[in-house]
Amino acid sequence: MTTWTNVCPLTDLVPDTGVCALVEGKQVAVFRFGTGETIYAISNFDPFGKANVLSRGITGSIGERPVVASPLYKQHFDLSTGECLEDADVSVEHFPVRIDNGVVQVSASA
């Protein structure tokens, strides 16, 4: 069974920015993409800079892919898959998200 952890009300997420949530002991970067209800969640740990910072990166698109750029050395990570665009061998974990009664939730139990 999937367990969902509350992150915050959707309204606390400023459009096109991210926050870090603690989900079952894991640091998860949660992003609101655009002004609507598109939410992505990937690991907050930057495997290049080796620091918990991805939630503080700038979001955008490369081609059709939604991405965040690491605030440290600017590698891009695909928000929907966690893949690094610059280095196919590197990816970060990505997590299921949903909005329940206006509250953003992430699951890390899979």
Partner: peptide, 21 residues
């Protein structure tokens, strides 16, 4: 709110991010 997503690594938290975040 409208301008915040445009701010680079340092500006967005009004500080200079170091290697450990």
């Amino acid at each position: 709110d409208e301008l915040m997503p445009l701010q680079d690594t340092n500006d967005i938290f009004l500080g200079n991010m170091q290697k450990d975040g």
